[in-house]
Every structure is written in structure tokens, then in C-alpha cells.
Design a protein around this nucleic acid. Structure first.
Lengths: 187, 187
DNA sequence: TGATTTAGTATCGATTCGATACCGCAATCA
DNA sequence: TGATTGCGGTATCGAATCGATACTAAATCA
């Protein structure tokens, strides 16, 4: 049964058409938008070129080029890590955040989800479960939400990461983490 | 709520990783595989360079290049249309069909769907409904299955296309048609 | 200290992709 | 019939992606 795969293929084409026709995305490559989208939703452990590389499934050389292009367009800035001076943190500029707000999620998707009502929520739930299932079976980088992680804890009345042994900002538990590992008995 | 979009983004990355790591796909670009996948599932009205162009959402020049590459690799052949001598029909070689059988659907997807059981079927149903909803709202090329088309009819005990006024091979009603238009009261 | 690993960059060649121009055939109309 | 227009497809150019390789610099480890 190859239908699920075919549906994704078709959806990918629709995304490509949407991207091409969107006036605000004219001078932005699809991969560049994906990188921005990721950076807008990842935590402070996961905003480095290497994390983007693992997330997008490309090589670090390729990603380095795309990030350079984004920097030239004034959409991201690079900040050297103070602990590890080899490392770089990528931060979105206000222009990038405005762009993302204006552009995502794609209107055609939002409208269709609206029209589907409760079915859209069910679709979202099942799709998330598909991703979790894949991640449990295959060795792919985790990249899940902090609050759903095995290492996510409560300590002193606030969120705490059991891996890095650090307290976390309350807002950051909704963000994507590259170190994410699912709990054993996931729902 | 941008979650649905985010899920598709993540899934796209997983597809890219899968493609990169698959030994049989080493010398095949993602777009080239998409074109093969489409050509394997489209009917005889829809196997031309222009149809591939519309399906993938690219320009005809770009697609012409990719098709040239596929031809050079011995995966497709071009046959001039007898009625309209400007037009070309693309046919997969046996090598291409073997490749598709070996490669699609991706193992990681099939395994995850297997593990999800009935939920996978529900996901498939909802995803198909999402696509139908999008196509009803936005002006995108149809590309649906022949048998679900407004013009699909029965005549003299066999399938018949009400648009081209031609009888159809029984097997072809399961194929993708570029002229597809959904019925008014779709399920 | 010296060797190895890691984060990131630079460069090269192959490919994609869009834009433009072009060719050949088809269709329309005078 | 003949000319114009339009369509399917290709060729070519330049910008960008992408992978592979080589490289720098910082961290880690023996």
C-alpha cells in the first residue's frame, strides 16, 4: 500500500507551488524557509548550524552556505558561544520573525484545516503519532518538544533538564530540542 | 495553530534523510524520483513533460532537464505522440519499474504504518480528505484518480471518459489523470 | 604536551531551477 | 490556401543548492 507515500508526495508538490507563488517568498529558497521555521521553534541547545544540519538532513557544508545567504539577507545573526568558542548560536532578526508570522502556516493549509473542523485535529494527532512511531523505530535525530522528553523534570517549581542538569525557562519547554528522547511509555 | 505545517516540515526532512541514506537512490535526485513515481501512476493523458511540470510545480524548462537526465540513466524513454507530433509520451523502462518496486514506499513509512494498525488507515483517509479540501478551495491542477472524476462513466460495460469521449482500459481508472475534476458532492 | 575529535567554513563540480529564447507543429482565421 | 497566433518541448545562461573534500580553530583526551 503505497498510498500514504503518494499523498505525501502530492502534498510536497502543493507546498512547492505555494512557495513559488507566494510574493513574500520570492527571494527565499525552500530550504532557507525551513531553516528559519526551525530556528523559530528550537531551544537554546538547538540553535546551532550543526543542529540545523541534523534537522534538515543535509551536510554541514551545504547548511553553512544557506545560513550565509540568510545572514546576507538580514534574516539571522550569528553569536559566538561563550563557553565553547567553536560554536555559534543563530538568532532570528525581527525581520525574519515578521516574515514567518506573515507567511506560516500557509493559507491554503489553514483554510483546508478550518473547513475540515474536528477532522483536522484528528489528522494532526495521527500525524504526530506517525512521527513518534518512526522515531521509535529508526535511528533519526530526536527533535521533539522539550516538555515531552524523557529528561524533562520539575524541580524547585520550575522545569528542569535532567540531561544538562540545568533549570529551564518556562517558555522554552514548548520548543524543539535536538537532544530530545521520547519517554518509554509514550501515549 | 501552525502544528500541521510543522509536522509536514519534519516529515519532509525525514524523507530527505531517507533518500540520502538509501543506497539505490544514490545517483538519483529527489525530484527525479518524484517524477518517476508520478509517471508510474499516471494515465496516458498525463504522461507528458507538461503534465509532469504541472504536477511537480516547476517550470517546463527545469523539468525538461530532469527528464533528459532520467533518459540518460536509462530510466525513461520518449515516444512521439502520433496525433499531435509536438507532444511526447514518457514511458518507464523495466529498470525504472524495478527500482520503484524496490524503493517505494519507504520502509520507515511502511513499518510505522504497520505498527499503527487501524490508525494508519484513518490517517490515510484524513490526509486524502485534506488534499481534496485543498483542491476544492484553491486553483491547483486536479491530478486525481480517474475513477473519482466527474467525467468518469460506465458505457458498454466498461469505463468511459466523458471529457475525451473515449473508452478506457479497465486498469487505467486507478491511475492519476491531469484532467481530473472532483464530483460536486464528494464524499 | 601532543593526538584526536568537533564546530564551522571554504572551495569545487554536478545538479537543480527560473528566465529567456527558440524550434516545430497545430489551430484559427482571413 | 496562407498567415498569424498559440502550444509542447528543448537549449542555454546564470544563480543557487548540494555533496565531497579539505581546511581552520577550539575542545578534549591520553
Amino acid at each position: 500500500m503505497s498510498t500514504l507515500f503518494d499523498l505525501f508526495e502530492r502534498l510536497t508538490s502543493l507546498m512547492r507551488i505555494w512557495h513559488r507563488e507566494h510574493p513574500l517568498l520570492a527571494d527565499l529558497q525552500p530550504v532557507q524557509l525551513s531553516a528559519l521555521e526551525y530556528l523559530a521553534r528550537c531551544n537554546h541547545y538547538s540553535d546551532t548550524p550543526l543542529a540545523v544540519t541534523d534537522y534538515l538532513g543535509l551536510t554541514k557544508g551545504t547548511v553553512s552556505q544557506s545560513l550565509k545567504a540568510l545572514e546576507a539577507k538580514g534574516l539571522i545573526e550569528k553569536r559566538q558561544d561563550q563557553q565553547d568558542k567553536r560554536s555559534v548560536h543563530l538568532v532570528l532578526t525581527p525581520a525574519a520573525r515578521e516574515l514567518l508570522v506573515a507567511v506560516t502556516p500557509p493559507e491554503f493549509l489553514a483554510n483546508a484545516a478550518e473547513a475540515m473542523g474536528a477532522d483536522a485535529e484528528e489528522l494532526e494527532r495521527l500525524l504526530a503519532e506517525l512521527l513518534r512511531t518512526v522515531q521509535r523505530q529508526v535511528d533519526v535525530p530526536g527533535f521533539g518538544l522539550c516538555k515531552t522528553c524523557r529528561f524533562h523534570q520539575q524541580r524547585d517549581g520550575g522545569p528542569f533538564c535532567g540531561l544538562t542538569r540545568e533549570p529551564l525557562a518556562r517558555a522554552s519547554i514548548e520548543l524543539i530540542c535536538r537532544e530530545h528522547q521520547p519517554r518509554e511509555h509514550a501515549a
